[in-house]
Design a protein around this nucleic acid. Structure first.
Lengths: 146, 146
DNA sequence: ACAAAAATGCAAATCGTTTGCAAGTTAAGC
DNA sequence: GCTTAACTTGCAAACGATTTGCATTTTTGT
C-alpha cells in the first residue's frame, strides 16, 4: 500500500481522509514496530484527538485492509501499517520486550497439510514468536504454552 | 501430562488440589476444543464455584504449565489442557466458528531462519489459523490481517 | 488433629475497548 | 465556492473480560 494510495483506498470504501486518520497512518508507517492504541494516541502531536477516535480509526483502517492487528500476549492489541502486501510476523523478547519483524514464514507450507487434515481452506493465520533477543542472552524464562 | 500426575505437579509448585481445580482440569481434559473461562464456569456442576475462582485457577494452571492459553481473535481467551507434551495449533472457521486442532506444525523449521535473521533464540510461538471449514465452503469472507 | 499456607466467595475495582449522541468535518455535485 | 448528505469526532457513559481486597473456608504437611 503506497502512501499516495491511502486517500483513494479510503474513498473506495466510503471513508474520509481526516486529519486524525492521516496522522495515525503516518505514525504507523514511521514506526519500526507495531504500536498500541495508547502509544499511537500519545504520539499524536497536532490538534487534540480523542483516544476513542484512535480506536475507531484503527478499526476502520483494519477493516479496509490498511492496518494489521497483532496480539503479542499483552493486555492490549498492537497495530501496524500493511505496506506493499508484505507478510510479516513478529518475535518479542521474553526478557526485555523488544519486538522485531520476522519475514521468513513457512506457514503457507502448512496449507496443504491443513487442508488434508481438517478439510479447512486456510485463509489467514496469526504467528507470533517469543524468545530471547541477542542482548538478553543467556537469561532463562519460564515455559509458556504454544 | 498424565491425569495422575496433576496432584504431584501441583504439589511441586506449592499448589493445592482443590475441588474446583480438579473439576476444571477434568472439564478441560474432556473438551475437544479450547474453552473460555465462562464456558468452563457454566460446565461446573458440583458445588458452586465463582467465576473469579475459575480465572484464578486457569492462571495458576497456566503458570505451572498444565494449561495453554489460546487467542482466536475473540473477545476472550480460551484454555486447553496440555497433555503429554503435545504441540497443537488451531484452525477456526471464519463462517461458523468451528474450532479444530492442527497437529502439523512447521514453525520449528523456522527457528534457524529466525535465529539467523534476528539473533533471537526461539522459545515459544502462537500460531492460530483461520479459514473455511468443509461444511461452510464455498462462502466468502472479508480479508483479515495476518 | 493442628497450625500454617493456600484457595474461595463476594463485591468492588480495573482496564482496554466500544457506543450514544450532539456538534464538527469531509465529500460530491452544482 | 456553496450546500447538503454522509461521515467523523469529542465527550462521557457503558461494557465486558479479568483482577483484586478481604474475611472466611479448605487443604496441606507434620
Amino acid at each position: 500500500m503506497a502512501a499516495m494510495d491511502i486517500a483513494n483506498h479510503l474513498r473506495r470504501h466510503k471513508k474520509s481522509l481526516t486529519r486524525a486518520r492521516a496522522e495515525i497512518w503516518h505514525i504507523l508507517t514511521q514506526s519500526e514496530k507495531p504500536l498500541s492504541p495508547d502509544e499511537i494516541h500519545r504520539r499524536l502531536t497536532g490538534h487534540k484527538v480523542d483516544l476513542a477516535t484512535v480506536y475507531r480509526n484503527l478499526r476502520a483502517l483494519k477493516d479496509i485492509g490498511l492496518v494489521r492487528e497483532i496480539d503479542l500476549r499483552e493486555a492490549f492489541k498492537r497495530y501496524e501499517a500493511i505496506l506493499a502486501g508484505q507478510h510479516v510476523h513478529h518475535i518479542m523478547c521474553q526478557v526485555c520486550g523488544r519486538i522485531e519483524k520476522v519475514r521468513h514464514c513457512v506457514v503457507q507450507d502448512m496449507a496443504n497439510a491443513i487442508q488434508k487434515e481438517s478439510g479447512f481452506t486456510l485463509k489467514d493465520h496469526s504467528l507470533e514468536c517469543f524468545g530471547i533477543c541477542p542482548s538478553c542472552q543467556p537469561h532463562k524464562t519460564k515455559a509458556q504454552g504454544t
